[in-house]
Nucleic acid binder design. Structure first.
Lengths: 344, 344
DNA sequence: TTGAAAGCGGTACCAT
DNA sequence: ATGGTACCGCTTTCAA
């Protein structure tokens, strides 16, 4: 072999063309049809064993990999389930759910693809997704309107499922109404005799999708009682929490629903540093039932959120794909229950 | 194979066929070529304004959305950057990094797709990715071998970038060696006069990718000193932590590197419940520099990890795509530095 | 300014 | 048991 100093190395070492089934056919001395039959194990056609071997060998030698786009173009459909990748910080709860879902859909022979749609919103995004011709689209959060659903369906999506606060015309809906989370928390605090209830509203953008309904839920729980709600804007940083804690007594609250366990931890620490007794002076309850709540002292009361199982959702998707004409199902799937610990 | 007559009346509302550019052409009374010119704003060709309008109107009326697969099939390439979706629980650090990256690649007009490859491993997975003919593939973690890289390149990927502990032949490498994290922690603890150092090894499967190098890093830091390392297997649950804490004094350790801030919190709580003084009796240091560390008392020392900026990685990808022949770059990109707080 | 037609990589009919 | 070939939807010469 000739030694070539790396400096003079050609900028483009022969960029071999990507092998196609035609190349495999040529090398194996058969037709493209035969290659297709062999590599797909087509059962409607018999190929002799020697031929099969030659094809397989040729394919392996060339490093042949079929072209998914060409295949699905010809087939007129794909098994791709598309989900927009979340753009907001998303907790371990969702990650777990998503992994389950992915696994379950994989079992049903679907391919899950998370599509990064940064900067696109609403129907623009729907168009971008539609270009990929997914067989199903799962859309967390709100932001997809009936028009978006229509675009997707017209472009061949056999199932559109929203995972969010409200149903959208034409799409299946897994209602995940965070109102219920707030309602749980509110009901609990009232039942514990609390009357002046603060509700943390996180400052991070994008979280309003969750925080607003949770707040509304608290309000709903308090309806008909003499309890009051105070909104407490709070960024996820120590200083803000400290400032809030410093004026805490002037707020005259006897309880707070801290949006999530993480915000609860932030606030609890600030309150404790300020010498405010938990739960005596102020009860605190979080949400999400994360491990960290159990590690706080006092142990953090929380709202445990139950997401649908990945398997269930996968089955819904599969059903919808097989029966695209069916009336869209709508089911409330967000379970919420209080886990009472020491902080409330 | 049995032919299914298309006329079989579906129980569903008429499943209209997906509109194609031919449909648009027909409705607008022009050729498909013209449609393509208009919708793509092809600058090499002039189309009269009235025609443009008719085409746009027809497209809108039909709800036409171009078929990405057909397009890239014809074009011979795509702008898709593929990343396998992480299967292991991944922290806020990675999520942040990924969002940045996605945004930065979006700016460069790439489309980022996270591919759910559950159950596939190694070169099997590489094949599945290759079927999508992405222009670039970013692979976090180990698990992709030189063969996998070859498969991807042969199928047209112009850039393969690994984000992991070691470089892989043929691929660009962003070395994220967690050894350095452990090394930081170890060095710090030794400098603080600690000599009998425990290292938490998390029980969750999949985390060995990180925990092993971190352990090795601690070992490396202690090399040449008289300090000793003790591995401490620990699942992420209270009971395990309590059991570990119960036998803590018998372990005779004066410091512990707790793998991450979250494990540190778990362990710290258990140690404190056991009455073990932190940092006097045992120093504790975590990693990841999460907010929660600042909220613990004593405040948690930690190793701050610096991932490459999404923009940098995006630029690397773009460079690699434009210059596919270039020698693969290898750069260490994982920054680690101790944030000293009160727990050590 | 517009249209006809070739062809991207596969698949599945219909012959042979 | 195989091969020929017509598509799938789109872009892009080349001609008109």
């Amino acid at each position: 072999m000739v030694q070539i100093p790396k400096q003079t190395a050609p900028p483009s070492p022969v960029q071999r063309p990507v092998p196609t089934s035609a190349d495999v056919a040529r090398l194996a001395g058969v037709s493209r049809a035969t290659v297709s039959y062999v590599l797909n194990n087509t059962s409607t056609v018999r190929i002799s064993e020697p031929t099969r071997r030659r094809v397989h060998e040729a394919a392996k030698e060339l490093g042949y990999v079929p072209h998914a786009a060409a295949r699905s173009l010809r087939a007129g459909h794909s098994r791709m389930v598309l989900m927009p990748a979340p753009t907001i910080p998303v907790g371990p709860l969702y990650n777990q759910f998503f992994n389950d879902l992915q696994w379950a859909l994989g079992r049903l022979d679907y391919t899950v693809v998370q599509y990064g749609s940064v900067g696109l919103r609403g129907d623009e995004a729907a168009r971008a997704w539609a270009e990929l011709r997914p067989v199903a689209v799962l859309v967390p959060g709100s932001g997809l309107g009936p028009q978006g659903v229509a675009v997707l369906k017209r472009s061949g999506a056999r199932a559109v499922v929203t995972l969010g606060p409200e149903r959208v015309e034409g799409a299946h809906a897994l209602l995940m109404d965070h109102d219920r989370v707030g309602h749980c928390a509110g009901t609990h605090l009232v039942a514990r005799g609390r009357r002046r209830i603060g509700v943390v509203m996180p400052g991070e953008t994008g979280l309003e999708v969750f925080s607003k309904p949770r707040l509304d839920g608290v309000r709903r729980a308090l309806h008909g009682t003499d309890a009051t709600v105070t909104e407490l804007p709070l960024a996820y940083e120590e200083e803000g929490a400290a400032r809030l804690a410093a004026r805490w007594r002037s707020l005259d609250l006897d309880a707070v629903f801290a949006y999530s366990d993480e915000y609860a931890m932030l606030l609890m620490r600030a309150l404790q540093d300020e010498g405010i007794g938990i739960p005596d002076e102020t009860a605190v309850i979080g949400a999400d039932d994360l491990m960290l709540g159990r590690l706080l002292r006092p142990r953090l009361s929380t709202v445990h959120i139950e997401l649908p199982s990945g398997r269930d959702l996968a089955e819904l998707v599969d059903r919808a794909v097989r029966e695209p004409g069916a009336v869209p199902e709508t089911q409330a799937v967000l379970g919420a229950r209080v886990v009472h610990r020491a902080s409330s």
